[in-house]
């Protein structure tokens, strides 16, 4: 009986992983700017999620719940690295994805987004790209509503400035 329950849980969890892995990995890649590290953190995210799977009550909130775990996993990693390296500035590995050569719109967006803090970048991505509401973002990032709104507004300003510069060029 217990085993049947475990199997059912595992099947449900597998569906959850397959549905959301793409967005969680992309989100983490944009936060930590390192592909292999992002995949390690994503794996860690899903392992943590599996341990807490019983606490997920509403399947509709699964996406916000997973983003919350992913963001906490990222923060834990950053804190651990900061402690290890004893640096006052936030340590993050060098970006892998900035290509050399002719500037492109892809590169410029990346630069505009990288100019934001990781908290702001996370808020902008969750809202504009992954469709989370402001309330869901407050839960996922553990920030007050006012801060989330200001982060998103700042992100939009940065993107608007990028667009204006791009149109002039």
């Amino acid at each position: 009986m217990q085993q049947t329950g475990d199997h059912k849980n595992k099947r449900l969890f597998e569906a959850l992983v397959r549905d959301h892995q793409g967005q969680i990995r992309a989100f983490l890649r944009r936060l930590c700017k390192n592909h292999s590290l992002a995949d390690d953190l994503a794996q860690d995210t899903f392992l943590r999620a599996y341990q807490k799977f019983g606490s997920l009550v509403d399947a509709k909130s699964a996406k916000a719940w997973l983003f919350q775990i992913a963001y906490r996993t990222f923060l834990d990693y950053v804190r651990k690295e900061n402690r290890r390296r004893n640096l006052s500035d936030l340590y993050l590995p060098k970006p892998e994805s900035i290509e050399q050569g002719k500037p492109s719109i892809k590169m410029d967006i990346e630069q505009a987004m990288n100019a934001l803090s990781s908290e702001q970048r996370a808020a902008v991505l969750l809202n504009l790209s992954y469709g989370l509401s402001h309330f869901e973002i407050t839960k996922a990032l553990g920030l007050p509503l006012g801060t989330v709104k200001s982060h998103i507004a700042r992100g939009k300003t940065a993107l608007r400035a990028f667009l204006t510069a791009y149109e002039r060029a």
């Binding site: 597998e14 992309a26 944009r30 392992l47 967006i109 987004m113 504009l128 790209s129």
Partner: peptide
């Protein structure tokens, strides 16, 4: 504006292909 920003970030935030990731997660449970 939101739609425009969303389109702008479309490629930047595009979900990754699975490429065996889900299987690796399930095997690691």
């Amino acid at each position: 504006d939101d739609k425009m920003f969303k389109d702008l970030l479309n490629e930047y935030a595009a979900p990754m292909d699975d490429a065996g990731f889900s299987d690796a997660v399930m095997a690691g449970l």
